[in-house]
Simulated assay, not measured.
Amino acid sequence: MAKKPARRGTPRDANGPCPCGNSLPYPECCGPLHRGETDAATAEALMRSRFSAFAIGDTAYLLRSWHSSTRPERLRLDPGQRWTRLEILGAEHGGLFDSTGTVAFRAHYREGGQPGTLTEHSRFTREDGHWVYVDALPD
């Protein structure tokens, strides 16, 4: 029997706003992507769903949504780090009819009771017709 992916659980209020920052509840926003019921329509939507996956600890989704050429074999999330908020700073391409795109974002977290941020400009592409994360652009 296959092991289920380790999860930190769904958002505190499963009917509250999704961790990605959209106003939709998690089950209607990133939940269907995480469950494999639908695909992200844009690079930004994939970015948001990946942030939510970090927030709830869904490593299986993170690996599934990673480009095959850059995907690690395993992913271990830091249990002491809690992702709290996502800001999209900008996006180029990555739309419905694009094959590549970039998304700049700032992700907020808490670790050891202290706030922190991660700012990244990420590259996305389509692989087998699905948006996937490739890597971070260098500063």
Rank of each mutant, 00 (worst) to 15 (best):
Ile88Met: 00
Val134Arg: 07
Cys29Asn: 03
Gly21Ala: 05
Glu44Asp: 10
Arg35Thr: 12
Arg76Gln: 15
Gly9Tyr: 00
Arg123Tyr: 03
Ala45Arg: 08
Asp135Arg: 13
Pro32Met: 01
Thr10Asp: 15
Thr38Arg: 14
Leu75Ile: 11
Arg76Met: 13
Glu73Ala: 15
Gly94Trp: 00
Glu111Ile: 06
Asp98Thr: 10
Ala40Gln: 08
Leu63Asp: 10
Arg7Leu: 13
Thr70Asp: 00
Asp135Ile: 04
Leu96His: 14
Pro79Ser: 14
Leu62Gly: 07
Ala60Met: 03
Ser49Thr: 00
Glu127Lys: 05
Trp131Glu: 08
Pro17Trp: 01
Glu37His: 11
Pro79His: 04
Thr125Trp: 00
His130Met: 11
Ile88His: 01
Leu24His: 14
Gly129Leu: 02
Gly9Phe: 04
Ser23Asp: 15
Glu37Gly: 09
Leu118Ser: 11
Arg35Asp: 15
Glu73His: 13
Pro115Glu: 07
Leu75His: 01
Gly129Pro: 06
Pro79Gln: 10
Ser49Asp: 02
Pro5Gly: 09
Arg7Cys: 12
Pro5Ala: 13
Arg64Glu: 14
Val103Met: 03
Asp13Cys: 13
Gly113Lys: 05
Cys20Met: 09
Gly31Ala: 03
Leu137Glu: 14
Gly36Ile: 01
Met1Tyr: 06
Gln81Ala: 12
Thr102Tyr: 02
Thr70Met: 00
Cys18His: 06
Pro79Phe: 04
Arg8Met: 11
Gly9Cys: 00
Thr100Gln: 06
Trp66Arg: 04
Ala2Lys: 14
Ala53Ser: 12
Ser49Cys: 08
Thr100Trp: 01
Gly116His: 02
Leu62Asn: 04
Arg35Trp: 08
Arg123Gln: 09
Gly95Met: 02
Asp78Tyr: 03
Glu73Thr: 15
His130Thr: 07
Asp128Ala: 14
Phe105Glu: 09
Ala53Arg: 00
His108Asn: 11
Asp58Ser: 09
Ala40Asn: 06
Gly36Val: 01
Asp135Asn: 10
Met47Lys: 03
Ala43Gly: 08
Arg106Phe: 05
Pro32Asp: 04
Ser52Asp: 06
Ala53Asn: 07
Thr59Leu: 02
Glu87Ile: 01
Gln81Phe: 05
Glu87Met: 09
Ala91Ile: 01
Gln114Lys: 13
Ala136Gly: 15
His121Asn: 14
Glu73Ser: 15
Ser68Pro: 01
Val134Ile: 10
